[in-house]
Design a protein around this nucleic acid. Structure first.
Lengths: 239, 239, 239, 239
DNA sequence: GATGAATGAGGTTTCATTCAT
DNA sequence: AATGAATGAAACCTCATTCAT
């Protein structure tokens, strides 16, 4: 500051680095965090996998927790906004729309390395409540909102029957997210790997069939009708 | 309560403790493993929560990994066998049967502390492949088999349409397991807690409606039929 | 908390330990902190000198800073209170009283290992402001108060001339403390060690001679008189 | 720069820089060493405060220890030689001379940033014995010699009583140095800052009053005479 | 059987030092 | 001459594991 030596244009170059080199570090960290969990990941390994020394990590991240937060934040893909636009412009039938939203989520996020973030957050949410909340608000809720918009559109246009939108979104999303989780948890252990395309196809089939089901009183019998309202929480066993 | 002796009248016969005591340790370990993950759990805390000293742990378990394995193994409830019997004896409609199986799973396992095991295994499966495989074979597959039996029964009896049983089981189970996971991950972070009964109700409604849907060519259009599960994996976007 | 096993009376026993074994650790730490400074002291060395392993340190002190604080606090000798009593009961001449207070401080504190604390605090006060303030209030000020009481007594009884008590205490204490500092700083470097007894004798001689000096206008010339009031801060050079 | 051969002819041109630039570095280093101590000072901070990069430090100093030594050596002001001359030429009364020497020391050294060197050396003398010895011989002893000369002159001219010159110098210097130490140690912690002018005034008053005290047998009683400095080291307590 | 003090390997973090530019 | 990214040795600290009581 007082010396003429300190170039005034240094800062930008620093910042630039913080986005260039760190990318490799974040990628390495993502992989390891997903694979080993937060506590099980050694910074030594992260650095090694990124091809740098342990100390270099600390040039870009204050500490392990900071790195973890950065990994979560940086891995949050933003195709949600893009998909949201598509919904607004779309004019075809709602079932195709919902299918599109689901398939796009899978290809853009669920089937990606970033998809492992879901598993990571699931496992570490109680250790990092703040980040969990961040993930909930910035990732999960927007994505649920997308599904909700598509379903609600179908109901409003008379294409879908009237269901509890919120709950349908929850359960549909659950099915899909589980596929992501499975891929990076039991996937490698299982003898025959899961067929993702078939899984998604079946999920769509199930939910769309249910949503488009018209029969006022036929397929849905008493049991089903009772639960359809969702406001009920009674329980019955066939015994 | 008063002296360092753990219990007033327990002292006399120690022999039985060898098998009785670990229950408290396993319970404590389960809670902590689920909450903090394997690496994040300190044996100190486990012992403390179980009300014993750290050294006592080593009287019953060789080491941390041994404790972990024991937790997983011991927490595996065996009501599955019992439920399997019920299915064999049952004679009513298949939708009620499926509902029963699902609700029983939730009350006996998913809604239990042991339900956290799912989250735990999900997070640690890559660190403990053998245990993951054990869990897959001893817990997941039998439980999937149960659902498969119920669905197949419905199809055979003409109550359900013909679907890809395997995949329907996968997605149905996914939805349900996700409820377990949510409860001990994002649950505590979320503003309004999830309504488990409604969630299960909606899941049953969706799957049963889909399974009982008859209309050969009406709601399910070409797209759906293609994905219905007949081993196809075609993909289409509304674009 | 939930378990009946945790005896409520364990705490005291822990606390007891915290004063038994830690004594050796505190002694070792004191020596090293005084010798090497805070940053220059390795916990490994402290433990080694105390004959225990590194980890044992952490059974008794949370971290390095905690150990440091404990060292300072524990080394604060309490002979000040005792000396204070003696002053109240004393009935002889004030010069002998002052001499006693000074000599006692030296034998009980300045000449002790704890005397090194002065050097330590001097060096680290800017790194640990809170501890510096603690030392200032709990050690330095009481000790200054003792000297002030003795001097004020002499003035009130007409044995000493009227001087700025506060400043006389400061400068007298400075001279003495410096002896402590010297002992554990330049002392070992100097060819011929300082003669502590002679040093203290001379200090007493100087201050007592000055205090008992009666000459209204003789020895103290203009220069001196000007400074005696202390309220002046003028400066003059003999040039 | 180009070949592995370390060209010895590259250096010549930069010789001057080698002596010019370090001034800023030495100033920065001095401040930090005084404030944080040797081990507690990071070269990063030194460079930053001097407005250069960390690597630049190594163009001028081999390593941290080298920098430290340079700081001590370069900070040793040479006004002592100058003051020594003044003493030789001086012809007035000895009390004024001593006062001059004392005040000059304060304004030229004690009140300077370099005054912090005393604190620094005190703290690090056991870590750097060679430098401590250097400081002792090159700084402390000459300065003590100055005071000794002034006092001895007073005794020889009959202005001062016969005292142990050596010890009087020690204790006088101690009082003064302590003021320097206080300023950069407890000074910032203390509620009301010390009044340096008053402190020096009182010190001069005390020592000059003592030195000029004539009364052979009146104020100074047996006790005092015994300790007066005549190489005796007897000790007595009023008990 | 039970304890908890003690250990030390291993992880995180810091920072003096180097080197390509 | 100057930079600042990169390094790795060494410090702090944690915690699974052992063992005398």
């Amino acid at each position: 500051m007082s010396s003429p030596a300190t170039a005034p244009s240094q800062k930008p170059r620093w910042e630039r680095r913080k986005e260039a080199r760190p990318a490799e570090l974040l990628a390495a960290a993502l992989q390891l965090f997903v694979e080993k969990g937060y506590a099980g990941t050694r910074l030594d390994d992260v650095a090694h996998r990124a091809g740098v020394s342990k100390g270099t990590l600390y040039l870009y991240f204050e500490n392990k927790e900071d790195l973890f937060k950065a990994v979560v934040r940086e891995s949050v893909v933003a195709p949600i906004a893009e998909t949201a636009e598509q919904i607004g412009r779309y004019e075809g039938p709602s079932d195709a729309l919902l299918e599109h939203v689901v398939r796009r989520w899978w290809s853009e996020y669920g089937d990606t390395t970033a998809g492992g973030i879901s598993k990571l957050m699931m496992a570490e949410s109680s250790n990092f409540p703040e980040i969990a909340r961040f993930f909930l608000e910035e990732v999960i809720e927007p994505w649920h909102g997308l599904l909700a918009t598509a379903i609600r559109r179908g109901i409003e246009r008379g294409e879908f029957r009237e269901v509890d939108v919120e709950m349908n979104v929850q359960t549909l999303a659950a099915s899909l997210v589980m596929l992501s989780l499975w891929k990076c948890s039991f996937g490698p252990c299982s003898a025959r790997p899961i067929d993702a395309a078939a899984y998604i196809g079946t999920t769509l089939d199930t939910f769309l069939t249910s949503l488009k089901s018209r029969a006022p009183g036929s397929p849905a019998d008493a049991t089903e009708r009772a639960n359809r309202g969702v406001k009920r929480s009674g329980q019955r066993s066939p015994r």
